[in-house]
Amino acid sequence: MTNHRTGAAEQIAMRGLLGTLNDELGSPLAPEWERAFWAVPRHAFLPETVWLGDDLTTYARGTAPQTWLSTVYADAPLVTQINDGKDPGDGERWPSSSASAPSIVFRMLDLLRVHAGHRVLEIGTGTGWNAGLLAHRLGAENVTTIEVDPSLAIHAALALKHAGLEPRVISGDGAAGFPAGVPYDRIIATCSVRQVPRAWLEQTAPAGVILTPWETPWLCYGLLRLTVDGTGVASGWFSPHASFMLMRNQRTDLRIYRDVVRDEHVPAQSVTLLSPWAVTGDDWAAQFAVGLQTRTVWHTWHDNPGVDGVASRLWLAATDATSWAAVDWDGRTDERFTVWEYGPRRLWAEVEAAYAWWRQVGSPGPDRFGLTVAPHGQHTPWLDSPDQPVPSTG
């Protein structure tokens, strides 16, 4: 692995990012995290090649070092692996590991509220930078980090060693935690989950905290901070920040035409006055609320689907592939839309009900929602307090 020095160019880039962080977070980094920022430079953990943007533009350190450095020290997420590390050739490329935007990294570290002596388990080592920041703050002996991809785990362990920090790096399934190090005062995940693994609850000390990005099939968005009580129940609030890649063992690999829709399906036809963009557009609060209620429904857009009179089609499907729906826009009117629904669930009707409930209760943002996880695994989302559960449409 290349030994990344911290020279003048790196220091200038780091100073620029620090100013950006202080502006983005609304206040200067806490002194202990600023010391970690300088002692554990981000560029020492990033791979020689990174990818940026929806088109996965390649930035290679060897061919454009200044561009690579400015990219590394921008306050933006970077894709650090594609296709689970396999060469896609001329095929489809998709992100499989990333480095979070630095502002999100430090926002999460602040939300974690660590104190001297705390033992921390990190799920999703990635590049190792976050583990390095924690190890500098708490001591390497108090940090354990798990990475499902063996090659990423090796890269992170080497980067940490070169930085003079050697927390315990485990190659394995983060959903299982690491029982040998229990109990943990804090568990922090750098991948999103749709279900909080029971192992995390079991391995967290009473009054300990679990901080994880959240995702529903409808929307990947939000952070969830749970406090575990002495009975194994975890409860806490969402906050409206960030989207992360889903934990690998919770992925849903479904495609509309390959796995869901069949030629022999005969859908029911109806009309809706609810714009499909109201629940899939820029209003993340609406999408978040719809996702909490529908729970197992995902969607995708199909522009110019090749159907007469249809300019765009919104597809919906249940994650078990037993039900689907389509909402058609004719390209002319934004007041009425044709709906097609098939299967035991009427998915668009569920979305309409979820959206109507959200409007009825005042269109709350994610930070008014919370979640309680029982020891046996039941997840109960709520609005404002645990005694006000969010309705489930499915």
Results as ranks from 00 to 15, higher is better:
Asp23Tyr: 00
Gly132Asp: 03
Leu274Thr: 15
Val40Glu: 01
Ser70Val: 06
Gly281Arg: 06
Leu121Ser: 09
Ala64Ser: 04
Arg119Ile: 11
Leu226Tyr: 08
Met14Ile: 05
Pro31Gly: 12
Arg345Leu: 11
Glu92Cys: 03
Gly126Ala: 10
Pro179His: 14
Gly181Thr: 13
Gly232Ala: 10
Gly85Gln: 01
Thr145Pro: 12
Ala353Asn: 02
Gly394Leu: 15
Val279Pro: 05
Arg119Tyr: 12
Leu109Phe: 00
Val310Leu: 03
Pro88Tyr: 08
Arg295Thr: 09
Gly62Glu: 12
Gln293Met: 15
Ala101Trp: 00
Val40Pro: 03
Asp253His: 13
Leu121Ile: 13
Asp173Glu: 09
Leu347Arg: 06
Leu246Phe: 02
Leu158Thr: 01
Trp200Asn: 14
Gly362Leu: 10
Thr204Met: 07
Ala199Leu: 11
Ile210Gln: 07
Asp263Arg: 15
Val327Phe: 08
Gln81Arg: 15
Thr300Leu: 13
Thr57Ile: 06
Gly230Met: 07
Asp55Thr: 15
Gly117Thr: 05
Ala135Leu: 03
Leu112His: 03
Val260Lys: 09
Leu46Gln: 04
Ala289Arg: 02
Ala356Ile: 08
Thr393Met: 15
Arg332Asn: 09
Arg119Ser: 12
Gly62Met: 03
Asn304Asp: 14
Phe369Pro: 06
Thr20Asn: 05
Thr145Gln: 05
